[in-house]
């Protein structure tokens, strides 16, 4: 049984269809990343699955339960990291994590969790004094304290510096290695590429592409871009046969081809072209 099953989910706010027929599965132990511009319906979809919002129509099962009717036993199996929380400012990191362990029957060890999210040095600090990235790590700590089977991460690394983001990825990879299923919403494509087994690109409430990060938007078969400098002018050529083009260039130039580079479209290139295609429709 998949951890999450979604079929033809719909949710409108007034005339605006925030979620317009979304279907996907997340297998147990898998990490699925939801990508899409602001207002595409990512958060609405996630919040329906977390039980915060009711869908207008469609079918959804989260750990086998209809999220609109999830009871406490069901909630005990979820970990939820919402967007931008500012609560708990008057407590310390340690107090908050220890307190929230109290809601669960089999919590993780609070001190271990604080250590795992890299807040050990800040354990005695008031939460209101944490930096943006530290605050997000506290939210993640509170999301995983109940040893969830399924973890929802809504833009978890906003405000992280690059080193903190790498640390965070390591933490999520460890959770995945322990079998935790993750539904990740993010704006950072490198994050999706790093963590996700599969990505779903959402635009205007619909999934426009759904595949592994390496395959999405026919990335693996796509063209490569070869660039070099010739007579002081930068040349860029898209080609499906880059090797042939490079052979031709090496024959034409004596020695090094100035500033020769070949690159495959990044996930970001692919993502942006998917969205551009969507906007043309």
């Amino acid at each position: 049984m998949p951890a999450i099953e979604v079929r033809d989910l719909h949710k409108a706010y007034g005339d605006v269809e925030a979620v317009a027929g979304v279907s996907f599965d997340v297998e147990q132990g898998e990490c699925l990343a939801l990508l899409g511009p602001n207002g595409a319906g990512k958060t609405t979809t996630t919040e329906i699955l977390e039980g915060y919002r009711k869908s207008d129509s469609g079918y959804a099962r989260v750990l086998g339960v209809d999220p609109g009717r999830g009871d406490q036993d069901w909630k005990a199996r979820l970990g939820i990291v919402l967007q931008s929380d500012r609560d708990l400012g008057d407590l310390t990191v340690s107090e908050a994590v220890h307190h929230f362990a109290g809601y669960f029957d089999n919590p993780r060890d609070p001190d271990e969790v604080i250590h795992a999210v890299g807040l050990a040095e800040k354990a005695g600090a008031r939460n209101s004094k944490l930096s943006g990235g530290q605050r997000r790590r506290l939210d993640v700590a509170l999301g995983i304290i109940g040893s969830p089977e399924l973890l929802f991460l809504d833009e978890p690394t906003t405000g992280f510096d690059p080193a903190a983001r790498r640390e965070f990825w390591k933490l999520i990879e460890e959770l995945k290695a322990q079998g935790t299923t993750v539904l990740l919403t993010t704006h950072y494509l490198d994050e999706a590429e790093h963590l996700a087994d599969r990505v779903a690109v959402i635009a205007r409430g619909k999934i426009v592409a759904f595949d592994t990060p390496a395959q999405i938007g026919n990335r693996s078969e796509g063209t490569a871009i070869v660039s070099w400098i010739e007579n002081g002018i930068e040349h860029k050529e898209s080609t499906t046969t880059p090797t042939a083009l490079v052979n031709e260039l090496t024959a034409r130039f004596v020695g090094e081809v100035p500033r020769l580079a070949i690159h495959r479209p990044t996930l970001e290139d692919t993502y942006l072209s998917l969205l551009a295609k969507e906007n043309e429709l």
Partner: peptide
């Protein structure tokens, strides 16, 4: 204030009556 700063939303997501 709790409604604004996410306290209530966090509690809603917990296994708490």
């Amino acid at each position: 204030m709790e409604r604004d700063d996410g306290t209530l939303k966090r509690l809603e997501g917990l296994p708490m009556p």
